[in-house]
Each structure stands twice: as C-alpha cells, then as structure tokens.
C-alpha cells in the first residue's frame, strides 16, 4: 500500500519533470515543419537554417560576449564582497550578506524596470556594457554565496596550522585560504555565466535590436510563430546548459580530494 503510493507518486512526478524536454527536443531533427510525432524523417535542415540566418548567429555571439563579460564582472564583485564580508564582525556580516544576496529575491521584472529607467538616463541602455553590468549584478549574489560557502567550509585548523608555522596573515590569505576557496570561485563563475546566458527579462528591457541576446530572440520568436527553428535554438541552449553542468560536476570532483 505504502509502496504503491510511493512509486505511483514518484514516477508520475518524475515523468512530469523529464518528459517535456525528452519529447520536445528531438523535434529539432524533424524533416517536416510540424512540431509533432511521428516525425517526417531525420533532417538537419533546421540547423542549417539557424546557422545561415544572421539574426540567430548574431544573437548567439551577443549572448556569449555578454555572458563572458558578466561572468568576469560578477566574479570580481561577488568574490571581493564575499572575502571582504568574511573579515567583518557578526552584525555587519548579516547586513552586508543581506545586501549582496538581495538581487536574488527582487523579482526580475522589478530589476528590469529599474535598470531600464536608470541605465537609460546614464546612456547605458542598449549597449554591451549596460547588459554586462546588469547581468553582473544578477550573477554576483551567486558568486558571493558559493565563495562564502567554500570559505566557511574550510577547516579552521588549516589557518591556525599555517599561523603556527609562522605565516603572516596576508601570506595565509593568499597562499592558504584563497587556493582552498578556488572551487567556490569556479562554481560561482559558472553560475554567473549561466545566469547571464539564460537571462531574458532584464535583457528584454535593455537590449537594442543590435545587441539582442539569444534568449530574447527566442522569446520574440515564441510570441511570433512556432517554427522548428525555435526547437533547434532550445536544443542548442540546453546542450550548452548541460555542458556547463557537467563542467561544474567535473570541477567539484577535482576539488573534493583537497578536502579529505
């Protein structure tokens, strides 16, 4: 009885979780232009269409450039913030953590309106730097959290051990603490990259037609007309996400032996 409830609910929920992507993404290879099964035959023609259309490739390069910039800026901001906050007292730590993490809680539409208005007045709207900075603000909290987690997870004895061996405070910081926290920085960097690469709402408000990103283009495409090219873009976006997840897993497995 209890087993029936368990397996019934788990399998239904699991199907709900994975079936949509498993069913839809293969349609990218459909020969015909209807997005349904049975497929009319295997074909890469929609891929070819994507790569010959300047609109999609330009959006892809924009996304990549913006995500890369946002990642570097986000790691800088979030990483500095986390290491700095670790050095402050308890009360200040709570306040500053609240501040640095808060962009995660503020609805993206609100951030979008605020950025659109303020960046517009600063002349940043529609520019590469405007998007990079906006996405850096969205990615920085994730960098902050993952660096913070890895700094907190460090064995305090390591620092004491280094001190007992005569290492100065700054030497310990640069040569003991930071290298040990490196996995946190790397994970944070990946989070920041993905956040920017997949971001739609803020980009929707800030991007000009020239600086439009892949998700914005996909969003516009979805509102416009359902075409097989949309599934191809979705497939490519998910492949990039999976690659990043794999990279994250690989980095974590590299970081593990250091701890034990």
């Amino acid at each position: 009885m209890s087993r029936v409830i368990f397996w019934g609910s788990v399998l239904l929920a699991l199907a709900f979780l994975i079936v949509p992507l498993v069913l839809v993404l293969p349609l990218a290879f459909n020969e015909g232009s209807f997005l349904t099964y049975p497929m009319d035959g295997f074909s890469l023609k929609w891929f070819a269409e994507i790569f010959t259309h300047g609109q999609w490739t330009r959006a892809f390069w924009n996304s990549l450039r913006i995500a890369f910039g946002a990642m570097i800026a986000g790691v800088l901001i979030g990483g500095l913030a986390a290491t700095g906050v670790m050095l402050t007292g308890r009360a200040l730590q709570i306040v500053l953590t609240g501040l640095f993490v808060s962009p995660l809680v503020v609805p993206s539409i609100v951030v979008g309106v605020a950025f659109a208005y303020a960046f517009g007045r600063m002349g940043l709207s529609g520019s590469y730097w405007g998007l990079v900075l906006a996405h850096a603000i969205l990615g920085a909290p994730l960098v902050f959290l993952s660096v913070m987690t890895s700094l907190r997870g460090l064995d305090p004895d390591l620092d004491l051990a280094a001190a007992s061996l005569g290492a100065s405070r700054s030497h310990r910081f640069w040569h003991v603490t930071l290298p040990l926290a490196a996995p946190g920085f790397l994970a944070g960097a990946l989070f920041a990259f993905t956040t920017s690469f997949d971001e739609v709402v803020v980009a929707l408000f800030l991007a000009s037609p020239e600086s439009t990103t892949l998700p914005v283009a996909l969003f516009a495409g979805l509102r416009d007309r359902l075409q097989p090219t949309i599934v191809v873009v979705a497939l490519l976006l998910s492949l990039i996400s999976f690659a990043l997840l794999w990279l994250m897993w690989w980095l974590q497995s590299l970081g593990r032996p250091q701890k034990h």
Partner: peptide, 9 residues
C-alpha cells in the same frame, strides 16, 4: 536548463 527552454517545451 533555461526557464525559456522549458517554457518552449
């Protein structure tokens, strides 16, 4: 997987 991709599905 991006929210947009899952919505697309």
């Amino acid at each position: 997987t991006s929210i947009l991709v899952r919505t697309t599905a």
